[in-house]
Amino acid sequence: MGKNPPELYYEVLNIAKDTTSPQEIRAAYRGLVRQWHPDKHPPSSKTEAEARFKAITQAYEALLDQQEDRAVFRARNVDEDGRRRSCASRAENAAGGGLPAMAPRAPCKISATTSSTRKAPAAARECSGQTKVYSSTDVGLGGRRAFAEFSSYVVRKAPPLECKVECTLEELCAGCKKEVKYTRDVVTKNGLIAKKEVTQIIRVKPGWKKGTKVTFEGMGNERPGCLPGDAVFTVSIRKHKAFKRQGDDLVLKAEVPLVSALTGWSFSFRLMSGEKVSWSFRDEVICPGYEKVVKGEGMPVAGGHRGARGDLRVKFDVVFPENLSEERRTGLAEILRGCA
């Protein structure tokens, strides 16, 4: 299709660039046409839908033209191969005393239908008289023309408008609806750019993580000659006073005085659900780095089985005294020496 093959056609139809099956091309076309028909879109996205609908139709027509050109080439090659084999066979018969050699027929002219009769049956094309002598200069003319027309109305999309939506661990744990307001650029009727405040509702699902993105297509900034950009919201997590998230687990740090770690300690805290939990350490020594795991009390697993949750890991940090008097140091040495 000319020096610059319109690879954009395949991208528009969302098919592989080596696709040669007309059935695959038609299937992709039908699905996209149903999705981007302008009558199915509200006024806010109708301009984009019209542009995409036209681009999809043009890409479909251009690829069908390309398939037809390939079919003509195949037909010409088959005809030429058959003619050469027939001539060789007649020559062998003549040399062997068989049937007399017939004078070779004049080369056949391969005809290609014009684009106006592309969808007509083969027999109707041959009888319609709307044929032309095939030549190499005609190959891809329809495709190049389609590519030029396609390039004339394909418009770029404005860059996405990126925003952050801050959520608490409680909101990410239970899920919620967040109302977010932001300001976008819009193009007025006289081509100027004005500011417009927009409100969107984001449905936060349980278990969403930091960095999760929510995209509102066509609700970002507008630029003259471009399709409206998208509004992209990225989830961030507000720092929690007690818990820290690690994957699907929650981590709670608890500071234990050295004397309590050695002689016994009671500890109370609340789960993310608000339920109060109390632990008592009477017969065990809390060592530095000691960790206790509560299964299934972490964050919900986004996209996992219903009810699937991570774990709660309580990490104990033993607090040592910064200073000791000589008397206390001596007393501790005597006590601890007997524990060795």
Rank of each mutant, 00 (worst) to 15 (best):
K40P: 00
E126T: 11
G220M: 04
V256S: 02
G220Q: 06
T188I: 03
H240F: 05
Y60H: 15
D317V: 11
V314H: 04
T212E: 15
Y29W: 13
Q130G: 00
A88Y: 10
A231G: 06
D18I: 00
V251D: 04
T57A: 14
E50V: 15
A112R: 15
L324K: 08
P38H: 03
S136K: 05
T114Q: 09
S44A: 14
L13A: 03
D311G: 02
E68V: 07
K3E: 14
F53D: 01
G274Y: 12
A71Q: 13
C226M: 10
K195D: 15
A123Q: 11
A27V: 00
P42S: 13
T20I: 11
E217V: 15
S135N: 11
A101N: 05
T199W: 05
K109S: 08
P321I: 09
Q35W: 00
R90A: 14
T199G: 11
R85S: 09
G331K: 12
A91L: 14
C108K: 10
I15F: 01
E48G: 12
S273C: 06
G207L: 04
G31R: 14
L332A: 09
L172G: 07
G289H: 07
I25M: 06
R52H: 11
K189V: 09
E61L: 09
H305G: 13
T113D: 07
E255W: 00
N323D: 05
R34I: 03
A103H: 03
D79Q: 13
E24Q: 14
A302W: 05
L336M: 10
N190L: 05
E7G: 07
P159C: 01
C87W: 08
T199C: 08
V214S: 02
A333I: 08
A28P: 07
E327G: 06
T168R: 03
R26F: 01
A302V: 03
G129R: 02
G338W: 00
T20Y: 06
I202Q: 02
R203L: 06
Q58A: 14
Y60E: 10
A308T: 02
D65W: 15
E11I: 01
E222L: 08
Q67D: 05
D81C: 00
W36I: 00
D248K: 12
C87K: 08
I110S: 10
Y60I: 02
R156H: 08
E275N: 11
T114I: 09
